[in-house]
């Protein structure tokens, strides 16, 4: 009931906030006047406003009362009604504002989804053919090659890579620290995808290559398909020789495909060398990194975590008799190493 009146007033009057302040001051005066039936002590403008408001509220109350069947009593407590109305109006105003904010946020979210939707406009057949094409370099560098601007495939490939990395970490003996591994895997994959894409885009901007950010993301994302295949195989079959063959073959093919696409969109010898050299080095080294250094680093991390975990406690205990301050400083100094 009061919500309706609040909404109504804020909607119809653009000077709502100023009026609300006025009414706040005169809130108790309404009751007094109703009781004493005296109009002195208040300006007529205010009174007119009051009466208009009260009439409006009466109308609203009457509307509400039509459903509640006790319309007769409402007229007698007009003063209380006014106070309640103001309270209700304030509360309703706040609620309405909060609701509006939330609704606009939700609307923004949905608007953003609508903005992103064209990038996810693909068919399964297209995705499959793009996955296969990502391993087939095209020897056409005179004419700009077509690069699909699409994000579904890259996003799914990055998530697949995260899952494969998790699997690799678990089977490589690092069974504990699951959560840290999960975060690291997600951070590595998304960091590589977004970071290197931005870097390539920046380089491409510097050397005046014709490529958009979206195309960069798509190109690099589909380039991760080779990585996924190689890592999935080599995490399960542990032959270093097999890994090197696959690294050169699949990783090389996907890198060549990206290099060819970039070559066709760049003009000049030095820009081509710069851009394609950076891309191929980063892409090939990332695969090496994922296969070798990754779980070694994690294992090393675990060692360093498990080693000094006990050491500071012992050291503090030993140093306490000598000098307390020194020990605390030293233990404080070792803390960042532990973290």
């Amino acid at each position: 009931m009061s919500t309706g009146s609040g909404n109504r007033n804020t909607n119809t009057e653009p000077w709502g906030s100023f009026d609300d302040n006025l009414i706040q001051g005169g809130g108790s005066a309404v009751i007094d006047m109703e009781n004493m039936d005296d109009t002195s002590g208040s300006s007529f403008e205010d009174m007119g406003d009051m009466h208009q408001r009260m009439k409006e509220e009466e109308e609203v109350a009457a509307e509400a009362a039509a459903t509640e069947d006790d319309a007769g009593e409402d007229g007698e407590f007009l003063g209380m009604k006014g106070l309640k109305g103001q309270l209700g109006r304030q509360v309703a105003d706040e609620v309405w504002q909060a609701g509006k904010r939330q609704a606009s946020r939700a609307f923004n979210l949905y608007a953003n989804i609508d903005i992103l939707r064209p990038y996810f406009d693909v068919e399964p057949v297209q995705v499959r053919s793009r996955l296969i094409e990502s391993l087939i370099p095209v020897r056409m560098v005179n004419f700009p090659q077509k690069i699909a601007g699409e994000l579904y495939g890259p996003l799914m490939l990055v998530f697949t890579l995260v899952a494969i990395l998790l699997h690799g970490m678990k089977t490589s003996g690092t069974v504990i620290r699951e959560g840290t591994l999960m975060g690291t895997a997600i951070g590595t994959c998304f960091g590589y995808w977004l970071g290197v894409s931005s870097f390539i885009y920046f380089l491409a901007y510097l050397v005046n290559a014709q490529i958009t950010m979206l195309q960069t993301l798509s190109l690099l994302g589909y380039g991760l398909f080779g990585h996924c295949v190689v890592l999935l195989i080599t995490y399960n079959i542990h032959f270093h020789f097999l890994f090197y063959v696959l690294w050169l073959l699949l990783g090389g093919l996907s890198t060549l495909r990206m290099v060819a696409a970039l070559l066709s969109r760049t003009v000049g010898r030095t820009p081509r060398l710069l851009l394609c050299g950076t891309v191929s080095v980063l892409h090939m080294l990332f695969l090496l990194y994922l296969h070798f250094a990754y779980h070694k680093i994690v294992e090393g991390l675990l060692d360093s975590l498990e080693g000094p975990n006990l050491a500071p406690i012992q050291r503090v205990a030993r140093d306490v008799p000598e000098m307390t301050l020194n020990a605390t400083v030293r233990s404080l100094g070792t803390l960042p190493v532990v973290r």
Binding site: I113, L116, R117, Y119, F120, D121, Y152, L155, F159, V175, I176, R177, E178, G179, M182
Partner: peptide, 28 residues
């Protein structure tokens, strides 16, 4: 502190479903 932690499983399940949902919304 080994094994999958409570919070991690929780986060995987909820964020995973949210991502799937957003994906299906984006696909129309």
């Amino acid at each position: 502190q080994g094994g999958p932690q409570f919070a991690e499983v929780f986060v995987i399940i909820w964020f995973g479903s949210i991502i799937i949902t957003l994906n299906s919304k984006l696909l129309g």
